[in-house]
């Protein structure tokens, strides 16, 4: 078992265990902090896949932005004074059945499919320059549109929340 495999199993276990904690814990604040661990684990998996830039973006945007937003949401929509920020489940049994069936289907498809994997993998390289060139050449339109979308989303969120 080499170092790569050890790191993969470490990050996979961190990701899945903390995602399980997100789903199963009763306290929303614990869920939010476990979600942070999940994001870190997923960032580690990106690094193992040779996507360093995506890993950094994941850390900055998810941990620094989205998670803070979610925690703000928790703080603003619960009465902090009762000091117990708990939440329950609804329709657990049907949900479990549906998710189990879905998981079975998904796993069956993953295992049965005839994936065409390249015989020799290229070594993971940091392709920051290549990603930048792709973003302003091939994907320039999508890039600009996403910028506009972010602006619209920001204005929309502010105007919805202010109402």
């Amino acid at each position: 078992m080499d170092m790569y495999a050890v790191m993969f199993y470490f990050f996979a276990v961190v990701t899945i265990a903390s995602a399980f904690a997100v789903v199963s814990t009763k306290n929303i604040i614990y869920s939010a902090f476990n979600l942070m661990l999940t994001f870190f684990g997923v960032a580690g998996i990106y690094v193992l896949l040779g996507a360093d830039f995506i890993a950094i973006v994941q850390l900055i945007v998810y941990v620094g932005g989205i998670l803070i937003l979610l925690i703000f949401g928790v703080m603003l929509t619960n009465k902090i004074t009762d000091s117990e920020i708990k939440t329950g489940w609804t329709q657990v049994l049907p949900a479990m059945l549906v998710v189990a069936a879905f998981a079975g289907t998904l796993l069956g498809m993953v295992l049965k499919s005839n994936w065409r994997v390249l015989p020799q993998l290229q070594q993971p390289v940091t392709g920051l320059a290549d990603i930048g060139v792709l973003l302003v050449n091939e994907y320039a339109l999508i890039f600009e549109l996403l910028g506009a979308l972010l602006l619209i989303a920001l204005i929309g969120a502010a105007s919805i929340a202010r109402k």
């Binding site: 989205i66 996403l146 972010l150 919805i160």
Partner: peptide
């Protein structure tokens, strides 16, 4: 990731409302 950021901002504004 960019779409997720936009989505969570809008969704939290709706949740606050």
């Amino acid at each position: 990731i960019i779409l997720a950021a936009a989505e969570s901002a809008i969704a939290l504004a709706i949740v606050l409302n």
